[in-house]
Write a protein that binds this DNA or RNA. Structure first.
Lengths: 195, 195
DNA sequence: TGTGCCATGTAACGGGTTACATGATTGT
DNA sequence: ACAATCATGTAACCCGTTACATGGCACA
């Protein structure tokens, strides 16, 4: 699922400009994918060249022209095909968890601030998901379920972090500079074997 | 947090070869980051050139030589610095959720198989996390907490999907070819505004 | 006046994945 | 014999992010 296909999919809900698509991706979609102008505009141009979308340039009074894109029949078919071929991938890339894994190298104060920042971030996202259901077309059944999924997962993460807050803090290095005694002659191989 | 820093961090647990690191990343780490040989080996070479790691080539009897790497004092410091500067990023990239969002375009049978595949995948990962605590150095407190986090989140996802299984299936298109009536003259703009 | 939103695009850069290339040992 | 595991690396490619470039309108 690259930006190209994502745009195609978003356009199945109705015509939109590149700018609109960006905003759309920042809504419920933001949970599980991201796209900037730098990938959206080239993707739209590509799709138009292949005949998967049609562009109706709309020169507005005064304003810079607004290019509205619609999916063509071929585009719709191509998108459904890509959905059918997709595998249920789900990748997480988390600096937060990496830092948590190396918590013993950090001073207590820093770790606590870091953890609190993450908790605050989760609360913000949960709040956003709870309110973003207001809006006409967006409150379809599929959107509701995907939002519900996000809420369930994020709430679980939030609960876990709050519940283990003190345990996590206790892992931090007592010394402010993070200078800890190293395990001597340790090897990673033992851990690796059991993977 | 790129592969370079990840390698550096992994080596703080003890010396290892590129091969070992790959295995290590496939363990608990696999939840929140990934790295292939194509990025590990160049990263190690780079780190060695900068003096952040030291390489002790170990020519084994018969076998291809095994290069063991250790962090230097400079490397350790550099790693702690990068931890201190890291922000609690947490990105999800999920084709699964994208497909779920467009479930109305898919035939029932396909959607059900897709969902079941994801549920099975989650069960497998949960099982893996539950068993992978066995192993000497790996069962430190930080590892335990990170694993616990993963278990909490994945269990929540699993529960949610099982609980809403029938609702999700009902979103699928009744017709096997996914030919649904389109919403006429729909626009994405209304949805986008509320983002 | 100046900040922020609407609106479209380009170009360089960074970074990871995939595929390729090689080769010995151990277990079936 | 054949597959799997150990073991190291290179090169092409894909793809997305970031920064840059531009410009009018609306609101404070």
């Amino acid at each position: 699922m690259n930006v190209r296909e994502l745009c195609l999919g978003a356009l199945t809900f109705g015509e939109a400009s590149g700018y609109d698509l960006k905003k759309f991706f920042e809504s419920t979609f933001s949970q599980f994918c991201a796209a900037g102008y730098g990938s959206i505009y080239p993707a739209l141009a590509e799709l138009a060249a292949e005949g998967l979308v049609r562009c109706t340039g709309e020169a507005q009074a005064g304003r810079p022209e607004r290019k509205l894109y619609q999916v063509t029949e071929a585009g719709r078919k191509a998108f459904v095909d890509s959905l059918l071929q997709a595998s249920p991938t789900h990748r997480v890339k988390s600096d937060f968890l990496v830092v948590l894994y190396f918590a013993h190298l950090l001073p207590t104060a820093h770790l606590e601030a870091f953890l609190d920042k993450r908790i605050a971030g989760l609360e913000q996202q949960i709040g956003f998901l709870k309110t973003c259901h207001r809006g006409a077309k967006d409150s379809t059944q599929n959107n509701k379920l995907v939002r519900g999924y996000g809420l369930a997962v994020m709430s679980a993460a939030h609960d876990y972090l709050r519940r283990h807050h003190h345990e996590i803090i206790q892992m931090a290095a007592a010394s402010p500079a993070g200078q800890r005694p190293r395990r001597d002659s340790a090897t990673l191989t033992a851990d690796a074997r059991q993977a």
